[in-house]
């Protein structure tokens, strides 16, 4: 918990073995280290997203889903799971999605059109989305404005075609300018089944959480950190600590929205020690950052 709020990280990763990615960086993130990080920051629960890489076979997906499910099962009340699907693998991917959810207990499915190279709102995705609808699970997607076929506005289009499915836009659409000017919040504003999630975003607290909440409603914004080997949840937690938001808004963003979106009973969450607002364990010891921020720049209202 943090400052009395239940905290759920809606985007985390485990990598149980060393894996070199991104030109030499080690992506290893064992369960113990993730949990320790969660404890230190006051994160009660995390949605661990199984992680696939480009060019994987269906057998690799099965193995990853089995490994992550096993890790999650050892941490009831702390870790929950989202599986990963590659629509280009066709019927096999659909079968594996169904297995992951019905047999392994995954609560959502992740799509990554950049890694798996497909058009996000193209016909190849339909069987996966239809299975998500049948299973009543949300679809999380990493999108990228710079990559043709992967632009965030495609999620808005796809969500309109499937109004019964919840779509979660990971990383707020992953474009610094669009975070700054709330472009994808505005794009998603009138599509109620699109949720925005703030992991792997820039050091713009308002653009990550408060601005989107003002545009699309506090019910549709999730705290998330992309916790793993690279992103540290403390940064996104401090964003919320810095913001002067009313309690109802903060508790939704910090955790209640994630419980609703991923259908996690609140009673199943194992609460952590309540951590103080603005205080974090760092390499420099425990540090306190003055909260709220000195001045947060709000969005311009119409007619301003």
């Amino acid at each position: 918990m943090r400052d009395g709020y239940l905290v759920v990280d809606a985007h985390a990763h485990l990598e149980v073995h060393p894996r070199v990615v991104f030109g030499g960086r080690n992506a290893e993130m064992p369960t113990e280290r993730l949990l320790a990080q969660m404890d230190a920051c006051g994160i009660d629960a995390a949605l661990v997203i199984a992680h696939a890489w480009a060019g994987w076979t269906i057998d690799q997906y099965r193995a990853e889903h089995d490994v992550i499910a096993d890790e999650i099962s050892r941490q009831p009340g702390r870790l929950f799971g989202a599986c990963w699907a590659d629509p280009t693998l066709g019927a096999a991917a659909v079968r594996e999605l169904e297995r992951a959810v019905t047999e392994l207990g995954y609560l959502a499915v992740k799509l990554h059109p950049v890694y798996q190279r497909f058009v996000f709102d193209g016909p190849v995705v339909t069987p996966i989305v239809e299975m998500a609808s049948k299973l009543r699970i949300p679809v999380i997607a990493h999108l990228d404005l710079r990559v043709p076929g992967c632009e965030p506005w495609r999620m808005v289009r796809l969500a309109r075609q499937h109004p019964d499915v919840v779509f979660v836009m990971a990383h707020m659409g992953r474009d610094a300018r669009s975070i700054q000017d709330l472009s994808f919040a505005y794009a998603a504003a009138d599509v109620p089944n699109v949720i925005l999630e703030g992991s792997s975003t820039t050091t713009d607290a308002y653009g990550t959480f408060q601005g989107p909440a003002e545009v699309i409603g506090a019910d549709r914004v999730l705290f998330a950190a992309d916790a793993g080997a690279f992103h540290h949840p403390a940064v996104n937690l401090l964003k919320l600590d810095l913001l002067e938001l009313d309690r109802a808004t903060k508790e939704r963003i910090f955790g209640l929205n994630a419980l609703r979106v991923f259908n996690i009973p609140e009673a199943s969450i194992e609460r952590t020690t309540d951590r103080r607002r603005g205080v974090f364990e760092t390499a420099m010891g425990q540090q306190s950052y003055p909260v709220p921020a000195g001045a947060i720049q709000p969005r311009a209202r119409l007619g301003a």
Binding site: V235, L238, K239, Q297
Partner: peptide
């Protein structure tokens, strides 16, 4: 002021330099 000093300072404090 679009981005917050505290966040960049926290990032600096989080790395073991």
């Amino acid at each position: 002021p679009i981005h917050q000093m505290a966040l960049s300072l926290l990032k600096l404090d989080l790395v073991n330099l």
